[in-house]
Structures are given as structure tokens and as C-alpha cells.
Design a protein around this nucleic acid. Structure first.
Length: 460
RNA sequence: UCCCCAGUAGCUCAGUCGGCAGAGCGAGUGGCUGUUAACCACUAAGUCCGCGGUUCGAGUCCGUGCUGGGGAGCCA
């Protein structure tokens, strides 16, 4: 007999005889001669109520079951006599698959996110975290669906990279060297003795790879893990996270901004349409304004604002900032929050940033002062997307690399793409966990990734 | 890495002026004929984060370290 998922059983329109379900006990209420057992199998947020009485074989054992124990239940799905649920299972037979020890840490009460983080291996068994990770899974599918519908190809960019610098960000070194470490001098490690015969690191971005494939397959995207060794201790940063990076040939900054806006709206709409039950938990218990926020992001046209206009608004604002606002300096978190949360009250795309504060690969504008960069800022999260039109002109790119202190030799293959049929192209990076924070209202990035990696934390 | 706050039972917290270590929930045991965070009764449960100091006496005051949270920087 095949087990049925609780999500499907609860969707039924009429009673079903002779079913088998399996799952874990979330809570149990006993009377003298019968018990109510609520079972969850992870297929949906809701539990199914099992009614079991003393006529069921081994009832005395069943009555002793603890929260967290695993069960197989045979019985009939019937309309519930109680008020809290439409259907319930009248059990005819029950197998105890395993009994959870009484030290099971998840109790029938609300736990703090901080405590649940210390038992990250068990937290997906709670309502809230089960919902987070079901939504995470659904949105992964939505990402692929979005790009596939638009003719994008999915590229697997390498996780181990030999590029000595892919832009900003501290790198995690990958090595098989063991002590005594071979040295060239007191300071310099002899990487020619290492696995790849060169210094290698975990990737901080798939962008350079994606550019090569955009210039071959047209429109491509990567979606995979990304690593940053920054000592960041905030609710918005983790050392290992998942990033979506589309890259489009024959596409300028405007097309890039449009794709970013369309993608965000698509993913939020997908969640509203396909994750309603789980999303409702967040709207009720995590952030009361969640649905309003999401509807605002889906229905509004995003503001397009050149960097210099953003500075003008900030300079004219009747608001005291901790950091000075000035042309040429980067926008601080407080400035971005002011613009998106207070001034415009909707998502905002800032573009044409000064070249001095952006990486070498961004396309230099005709003014020779700014680059074709764009950041999409959303209320509560701040920067959700960062991208640019790429510098396709060989001579300009080479000059900017030299100014950034990068060696042209190491990027020979990257520069080749500008030698052989170079074309305008654009792309961006979207932090998948930040998107999940936006959609669920969860305020700490550590709570939307299964086992978060942050400075000092590698457990699980 | 910097600034601010916190750490007391399994969990969430209270603990007054420096003077006997507390509650709710959870757990265990028993009771209860339809429960919904069930209900009723009883029981067990503590390195008061670590180290050092002040004091007759420290959960409480001082120093320091560790851990967690919020904010900042870096960014997605």
C-alpha cells in the first residue's frame, strides 16, 4: 500500500477509505480511552488530525508516544466532528516507526529564531521553517521557469576559480597544501606545488564565465552558490549564499534594468500564486504588512534615478544623516533606505554611478565620469540587485584594468572576448536569500538558508 | 572589524537597596468520553555564561574574556 502525502489528503472533496500516511507527531491530546494525534509529513504547512481509540491494536503503546515520534497510520479519512479542521483520520491501525526521546527540543510553543538557529538541524520541523524552505524550493523552480520562458540558457560556472581577483570581496582559498607549506620567500607561498599549480579560490561571482557564454549562446544565467570571506556580521550577509546572475548579449543598461524589474515582479507573483498557505503564515505572524509590501512591489513602476539626481534629493532632504552626502562618494545604507522607504516608498533603480566607486568591467559612459551601473533597491532589504552594462571596448577595458591594479595577462581569456566579435552586453546579480527575506518578511538572512555559514559558525 | 544591548531551570523570562534561587510553558506520573498552544492534580529539574576583583556576604557592583542580538562598514 502506497503512502499518501498529507497535502493531497487535505485537498480531498470527499471521504477516502483505506488510506496510509506517514509522518511525525507535532502534538498529541489524550483522553481516557482515545487520543488526538496531529501528524505532519512536511508536504504542507497543515497537520492532519488522527483519532485513535482503545480498540486500536497496541493503544497503550500509542498513548505513550512523544512529540517528534514517527508513525505510519492506516485508516479512513472522514469529516471531522471537531471544529478546527475539515478532515481527520479515524485510525484502524498504527505502526510506531520510532519514538522520539523525551529530550526532543521542539516544544508545543513558540521558540525564538535565535534558539532555533542553535538547532538548525531540527528547525525545518517547525511550521515557520518548514514554510521558509518550501517557499525557497518553489522559488528555485520559478527562477528557472522565468529564464526558460525567455529563451535563456542555464550555465554552470565554476565554483573554484584561478582569477586572482574577480572584483571586490575577500576570497576563500582552496588548497591541498599541508604543513610544511612550501614557500618562495618568508611571505609568499609557492602555489606551483599546490593542486592547481596556482593560487585558487572559491568564486565570488559567476559573472566573468557568464559573459563568455552570453557572447556565445546569447542570453544566459547562472544560479548557484557564491562565497565571500568578508568578516561581515549583519542580518543581510552570509559567507555562502546563492546568487542568480543573468547575462545578455546585445543588451544595454536599460534592457538590464527592465529584466531586473520583471524578474523581481515575476518571482513575487509566483510566490503569491503558488505558496499562498505558507505565505499566509508570514503575513500573520512575522510581518503584518507583508502582503501590502509585496503588492506594492509587484504593482508599482520602479523609479529610475541617475546617481547624481539621487545625491540632489539627499542633499535637499530635510533629514539628518550620520554620513555626509556628496557627489563622488558611495551611497550609505541610511541614504538608500531613505530614498526607497521614505522618499519614493517603492523600489528604486539608481544608475550611472561615478566610475571611481565601481569595478573595472562596468561600461564607461560618454561623460568619462560615470559608468553604466545600476542597483535595484527595495524597502526593508536595501540592495537586492547590482549590475551593469559591461565594457565591451578593448582599449577602454584594458585602461581601466591597469588603473585598478589588475594584470592583463591573467585575464587574457576575458579580454579575448573583446578581441573577437565584441558586442554590448549586460547583466546583474540577484541575492537569492535577500529575495527570500523580502518575500517572507524574515528579518535575518540566516533564517532563510538551511545551514548558514557566517564568521565563526560552520556547525551542521 | 567598530558602536550599543543581553546572557538566571529544557524554552521564555522575573529577581526590588548587595542578604534563603522564582514563575509560566515544556518534561515525567496520575486523572478526564471530541480535543485544537486541550484541561485538572502532583513530581523532578540550576556551574545564575567563564575567569578575576571589591565585600562579612555578589545572580545583583567593578574588570576581563566568550557567546548571542541590534546597528555600521563591505556587498548580493
Amino acid at each position: 500500500m502506497k503512502r499518501q502525502k498529507i497535502a493531497n489528503l487535505l485537498k480531498t472533496e470527499k471521504p477516502i477509505e483505506n488510506i496510509l500516511l506517514k509522518g511525525w507527531i507535532r502534538t498529541k491530546r489524550d483522553s481516557k480511552t482515545f487520543s488526538f494525534i496531529e501528524v505532519n509529513d512536511g508536504s504542507c504547512l497543515k497537520n492532519i488530525q488522527i483519532v485513535v481509540d482503545e480498540k486500536t491494536p497496541d493503544y497503550s503503546e500509542i498513548k505513550k508516544l512523544t512529540t517528534g515520534s514517527a508513525l505510519a497510520v492506516w485508516g479512513n479519512l472522514v469529516p471531522s466532528q471537531g471544529g478546527g479542521q475539515k478532515w481527520e483520520v479515524q485510525a484502524t491501525k498504527m505502526d510506531i516507526i520510532s519514538v522520539a526521546l523525551e529530550t526532543f527540543p521542539l516544544q508545543k510553543k513558540r521558540h525564538t529564531d535565535e534558539y532555533l538557529r542553535t538547532i538548525a538541524h531540527l528547525r525545518p520541523r517547525t511550521n515557520k521553517y518548514g514554510a521558509v524552505f518550501r517557499i525557497r524550493s518553489e522559488l528555485c523552480w520559478a527562477v528557472h521557469q522565468f529564464f526558460r520562458e525567455r529563451g535563456f540558457r542555464y550555465i554552470h560556472s565554476p565554483l573554484i576559480t584561478g582569477s586572482d581577483c574577480e572584483g571586490a570581496g575577500e576570497l576563500f582559498r582552496v588548497t591541498t597544501l599541508n604543513p610544511p607549506i612550501p614557500m618562495i620567500s618568508n611571505e609568499k607561498i609557492d602555489f606551483s606545488k599546490d593542486f592547481f599549480c596556482a593560487e585558487s579560490n572559491l568564486t565570488v561571482s559567476g559573472q566573468l564565465s557568464a559573459e563568455m557564454f552570453a557572447l556565445s549562446l546569447g542570453d544566459v544565467y547562472t544560479f548557484g552558490p557564491t562565497f565571500r570571506a568578508e568578516n561581515s556580521n549583519t542580518s543581510r550577509h552570509v559567507a555562502e549564499f546563492w546568487m542568480i546572475e543573468p547575462e545578455m548579449a546585445f543588451c544595454d543598461l536599460t534592457g538590464n534594468m527592465d529584466l531586473g524589474e520583471t524578474l523581481i515582479k515575476y518571482l513575487i507573483t509566483f510566490a503569491i500564486d503558488n505558496c499562498a498557505e505558507d505565505l499566509d503564515l508570514f503575513a500573520r505572524f512575522v510581518d503584518k504588512t507583508l502582503m501590502k509590501t509585496l503588492e506594492n512591489i509587484v504593482s508599482s513602476d520602479y523609479v529610475h534615478l541617475p546617481y547624481k539626481d539621487a545625491i540632489d534629493i539627499l542633499l535637499g532632504a530635510n533629514e539628518s544623516f550620520e554620513f555626509e552626502v556628496a557627489y563622488g562618494s558611495d551611497l550609505q545604507s541610511e541614504h538608500e533606505r531613505f530614498l526607497t522607504e521614505k522618499h519614493f516608498k517603492k523600489p528604486l533603480i539608481i544608475y550611472d554611478y561615478p566610475k571611481s566607486i565601481k569595478p573595472f568591467y562596468m561600461r564607461l559612459n560618454d561623460d568619462d565620469e560615470t559608468v553604466a551601473a545600476m542597483d535595484i533597491l527595495v524597502p526593508r532589504i536595501g540592495e537586492l540587485i547590482g549590475g551593469s552594462q559591461r565594457e565591451e571596448r578593448l582599449d577602454v577595458l584594458e585602461k581601466r584594468m591597469v588603473l585598478s591594479g589588475l594584470s592583463k595577462e591573467n585575464y587574457w581569456w576575458y579580454l579575448d572576448s573583446r578581441r573577437y566579435g565584441t558586442v554590448p552586453h549586460s547583466g546583474f546579480g540577484l541575492g537569492f536569500e535577500r529575495l527570500l527575506m523580502l518575500i517572507t518578511g524574515v528579518s535575518n538572512i540566516r533564517d532563510v538558508i538551511p545551514f548558514p555559514r557566517t564568521p565563526g559558525n560552520i556547525d551542521f
